[in-house]
């Protein structure tokens, strides 16, 4: 997994609540057996005017000029600013794969759906929960200022605004450690292989029908 330490990134505002994973990456792209290449189809139904299917040359498709990601001032954005309950719905990890492949490294919202939130950390993406009033203020600031960037420091757990304000954010210690060091969860878990085997033996003795 790609490490995440510091980012000084352009912000794009996606001003709607309950953005679901079907919207982030529509189902037809889930037929892929790969975990890369989903970026051009992130938010496909909002981003393009035609109907997208796997295998199309996305560079030739008509863009929806009204969709925020298509506006010239937000090209190259690495921070996605969103509203409540971002990433709700399906557990498809294709959603964080698509966002990461598009170029996002940080998503800021007042709240996230649990499975999506968890999936982000497995893919070098940092989801940050901030109070709704702070998110609201960021939406206003981004819209008022071209080229609005935020400095995100995972080690310090801070977001620095251009006006000098700094917000602290919470992150689970285990997830922070993995993200800062780009660690693979499986390798870490296998350090407990004896614990797992001991548990399994005890579990098998107590509930043998689970192992029949």
């Amino acid at each position: 997994m790609r490490k995440f330490t510091l980012l000084d990134g352009l912000v794009v505002p996606l001003d709607r609540a309950n953005v679901d994973t079907d919207a982030i990456i529509p189902k037809q792209f889930l037929k892929s057996i790969k975990r890369s290449g989903f970026g051009p189809n992130a938010f496909d139904e909002w981003r393009y005017l035609d109907h997208g299917e796997p295998g199309m040359d996305n560079s030739k498709r008509p863009l929806n000029p009204d969709f925020v990601l298509n506006q010239p001032r937000y090209q190259g954005a690495q921070v996605l600013l969103a509203r409540e309950n971002f990433g709700c719905g399906s557990s498809r990890e294709h959603a964080p794969w698509a966002l990461e492949d598009y170029g996002f490294r940080v998503i800021i919202a007042p709240s996230f759906a649990d499975i999506f939130f968890n999936n982000c950390f497995k893919n070098g993406l940092l989801p940050i929960k901030l109070d709704a009033d702070k998110v609201d203020a960021l939406f206003k600031a981004v819209e008022a200022n071209n080229g609005y960037k935020l400095k995100v420091d995972l080690e310090q757990q801070t977001i620095a605004l251009p006006d000098g304000t700094t917000y602290k954010f919470d992150v689970d210690a285990h997830r922070k450690h993995c993200l800062l060091n780009g660690l693979d969860d499986i390798g870490l878990t296998l350090q407990h292989v004896d614990d797992i085997k001991a548990f399994e033996a005890k579990h098998r003795a107590a509930q043998p029908w689970l192992f029949a």
Binding site: E93, N119, K122, N123, D185
Partner: peptide
């Protein structure tokens, strides 16, 4: 509960 693909592998 549902899990992502990285967790499926895990």
């Amino acid at each position: 509960h549902g899990i992502g693909t990285s967790e499926v592998e895990h």
